[in-house]
Amino acid sequence: MSAAALETARVWLVVVLTLLGLFFTLVSMTGVLRLPDVYSRAHTASQADTLGAGFGLAAVALTVGVAGGGFKSVLLLFFIFLTNPTAAHAIARAAFEEGIVPWTEGDDRR
């Protein structure tokens, strides 16, 4: 009885986590389309995505469980947390060294 209730809670948690992941990925995409320049796009491309992937991987871990190797998705998250900011930094740094001036308020570029 309580095992079934636990199972239901798990399924709902997976659904909620997946939706949260989708939401933050959607926000990330919107940001890439709406924001004005390479720097602010690098922000959102890496960041909202970190949480999007984070919730998605949490849902995966919960679905497959500990026996199914759920800790591997935790490891994946760990690597995303290392590589994601590094990639964002590389993009922004390349832009900076190219001499691209960040967009500020009042700038015509958009």
């Binding site: 720097y39 690098a42 922000h43 959102t44 890496s46 960041q47 909202a48 970190t50 947390f81 994601n84 900011p85 964002a88 930094h89 922004a92 740094r93 832009a95 900076f96 060294e97």
Partner: peptide, 11 residues
Amino acid sequence: ITLTPGTLTVR
């Protein structure tokens, strides 16, 4: 700093 949204380390 980069992971925290709203701030991005450029250099």
